[in-house]
Design a protein around this nucleic acid. Sequence first.
DNA 1: GACCCATTCTTGAAAGTTGAACTATGTAGG
DNA 2: CCTACATAGTTCAACTTTCAAGAATGGGTC
Lengths: 168, 168
Amino acid sequence: MDTMGDTTEPRWLNDDEQRVWRSYLHATTLLEDHLDRQLQRDAGMPHVYYGLLVQLSQAPRRRLRMTELAKSAKITRSRLSHAVARLEKNGWVRREECPSDKRGQFARLTEEGMEVLRRTAPGHVAAVRQAMFDRLAPEQVEQLGAIMRVMAEGLEPTDPEADLPWLR
Amino acid sequence: MDTMGDTTEPRWLNDDEQRVWRSYLHATTLLEDHLDRQLQRDAGMPHVYYGLLVQLSQAPRRRLRMTELAKSAKITRSRLSHAVARLEKNGWVRREECPSDKRGQFARLTEEGMEVLRRTAPGHVAAVRQAMFDRLAPEQVEQLGAIMRVMAEGLEPTDPEADLPWLR
DNA sequence: GACCCATTCTTGAAAGTTGAACTATGTAGG
DNA sequence: CCTACATAGTTCAACTTTCAAGAATGGGTC
């Protein structure tokens, strides 16, 4: 992208920045692909679906409202609907009505789903370690955490209200 | 990934590591989603497709063999086939026969495709800056580059030969 | 209650991805 | 030349994701 813009010259990335950006894209896509394949092979589901089961396994009574689950997994409710339908077909998740809000649904992790998690978690953790924690120096792990927190902050979807305090 | 089937307790992530891992997943998915939406809106294609056009724009004669392009974009040839078909339908890429190898195909960026790139690159760079470079301290950018290089190294698809050093 | 709008979740169609099977061409050895 | 196998790229079916639309319930106001 070394060509001219239309009217105002944008602030292009310099060579160092380009290198960092490429490394970032390179590493993140390789890792996501790697985990997807590893989990597809060993657990029969993509990484995102695995993440849903993990979230559920850590929730009280191993269940969460759909919207809560969608939020914590950072996916749309639509996507979650499809995903839960698939996981339900596998017998790993069950939908349950919410008594206090008839619109609502819980997604609950079944014992069978929990079993899948128990069986596949070690391999998954090993893959994550091998890709990240076993290769980085302790201070790099710390740096990575700080960096990712800063980036997430800037991308966090905020309340539209909270986003415009000066208009209140 | 030869780690399954042994009975020793796996090395789970400790709390710090978990926090880093979650931050990583959080930030990377938010950023990828953000860029996908930004490019879908402004350029009418997902981030991966945009990356293909960028690769082509930097290649000699603005063209690459399909396999080369797939490699540099880290996607499968199958995925690339579909992607190029779509980009061709948009008029942004054209397929060309390879004279020296009748099995081969070049993907060439059209002038129209180049124009899309010129028009949308500024917005894309701005999004990347806003999410990453404008928020990180210079030393953090440097750290991130080093970290991502290390991680990519460990995930790089290697020669089968080179993959078995313990047999040498 | 009647009205209005927000929230929750689902659905259906289109777009994108995956993995395996397939076509066609190249390459090496006999 | 023939065989065998490798490589380049495509295609198909199954699956996943996205976007827009829709059904149902909740909550507020008059």
